[in-house]
């Protein structure tokens, strides 16, 4: 029976000390479980930040490599493992944007009909909606996008998300509300244009 990955497991994965060959193996094993547990949340975060699948894979790998490299700097007294990890993820995402190398999928040029011609109608509709949402997210300012991207991570509370964004919880909530309204407006405008 598979045991549930807990916060204590995450702390153990980050605070192991390598003293020999055997402990390095068990340390890697624990970190593997850490990657397995958090990868979906990291990918979800990067997708909501507006990265393509390929970029998300590159950034997510860098995030976990950094987490491995700097795991000794993690202090369980200061932050939850998820808060620490998503601070790394947020910094990696911002760094990717600022490096101007973020290759965004040119959604306007994606031939959805051609790509999904063999898919059932409902699946096609879902795919179109997903692409429209990704495009709308990319139109939001970076801070707003960060707020939305962090909000949907189950392991994070609003206070955790606020600490990652280095703002007060109330500020985070205001930013989130503003971002969601903007996103809805962008999507509504798109629907009106399509009608």
């Amino acid at each position: 029976m598979e045991s549930k990955f807990t916060s204590a497991d995450a702390v153990a994965a980050l605070s192991t000390d390598i003293t020999g060959e055997d402990s390095q193996d068990s340390s890697a094993q624990r970190f593997g479980a850490f990657v397995e547990h958090y990868q979906h949340a990291v990918f979800g975060f990067l997708g909501r930040m507006g990265f393509s699948q390929a970029d998300s894979e590159d950034i997510a790998q860098e995030v976990f490599l950094k987490a491995w490299r700097y795991r000794r700097s993690y202090n369980p007294q200061k932050a939850q493992p998820s808060t620490w990890l998503f601070t790394i993820a947020r910094n990696a995402a911002i760094s990717k944007f600022s490096s101007k190398r973020a290759v965004e999928v040119p959604l306007d040029t994606v031939d959805i009909a051609a790509e999904t011609q063999h898919q059932p109608e409902r699946q096609l509709q879902n795919e179109q909606t997903r692409l429209a949402l990704a495009k709308a997210l990319r139109q939001l300012p970076l801070d707003d996008r960060c707020a939305i991207a962090l909000f949907y991570i189950d392991d994070l509370s609003s206070a955790d998300a606020a600490s990652i964004l280095q703002c007060k919880t109330a500020t985070f909530k205001t930013r989130l509300s503003r971002a969601r309204n903007k996103l809805k407006l962008i999507l509504d405008d798109r629907d009106e244009m399509n009608d």
């Binding site: 990918f43 909501r48 699948q53 997210l137 949907y152």
Partner: peptide, 10 residues
């Protein structure tokens, strides 16, 4: 949709 995520981990 936002919670579901727009990209998936391989």
């Amino acid at each position: 949709m936002l919670a579901d995520g727009l990209v998936k981990s391989p």
